[in-house]
Amino acid sequence: MAWHERLLAIDRRVLYALIFLAVLIPSLLPIGLPIKVTPEVQRVYDRIDSLRPGEILMLPLEYDPSTAAELEPMALAILRHAFSKNLRVLGLCLSSTGVTLVESEIAAVAREYGKEYGKDYVYLGYQPYPAVVILTMGENFRTPFPLDYYGTPLDSLPMMRGVRNYNDVALVFTVNATSGIDFWIIYGQGRYKFPFGLGSAAVMATNYYQYVQSGQLFGIISGLRGAAEYEILVGKGNVARKGMDVQSVAHALIIAFIVLGNVAYIVERRRARRAAAAG
């Protein structure tokens, strides 16, 4: 069997094993490849950084364990930035399977910065039917969320006194891996015109870059790469940064697979044509 035939007949499980090693080895032995901050991520950082202490950052964190590997580092970096600037954080999660995960993340970062629940941050939790929730929050947060995640009436939380709807928050930034992004764009930003930023799973990112161009989003952080850039800007956390070494090695391997596969295919096609011409 010729080399190109062996290459074309290779068992896919061998490729899986190579990808697994390409992920495992750099995650155990980081290389520390350089990462450049993109303008879209810089814009998100600058916008949040320009807020004054005490202003409210609304953070809908909508993902669950299946996408946490990608979006958790991003959410933690944003939370660290917000708490380090003494912004007040209004968290919620409109993804039913991520509610407790998001709660534990917000509480952990708040503890890191010595923040107090009810005064420095509030977690609204989950309500079904995200489009309706986003629309009704424009009238009053208390309509979909009369109680917070822990069952406390919003009016009895010091941070929520005088905070009625989107007009009372400085900006909304969602870290999101659901179709809820469209709901936020249509029923949230489209209807109430608040400043809106997005951190999305990489697989969805290309669907939303055009909203930065149109000004509907003030910036976008996409996937683990965006999270790594934000970690650099904040100067804390290295989960995503370490992950970028893995990405680089795995991508190089996948590119090598594509090139080798195509070379073998072309060689085989030429061989077949020559054989057909020779009769």
């Binding site: 990808i19 697994f20 992920v23 495992l24 995650s27 155990l28 299946s66 996408t67 946490a68 590997a69 990608e70 799973a201 990489a202 697989v203 990112a205 290309t206 996409s222 996937g223 683990l224 790469r225 992950g243 893995v246 990405q247 795995a250 991508h251 996948i254």
Partner: peptide, 22 residues
């Protein structure tokens, strides 16, 4: 571009599982 982002996303998820198993 979409395919590239998809590969990046899937590798991130695999990395999450690998880190968890390690």
């Amino acid at each position: 571009a979409t395919f590239g982002f998809t590969v990046m996303g899937r590798i991130s998820l695999l990395l999450g599982r690998v880190n968890f198993l390690v």
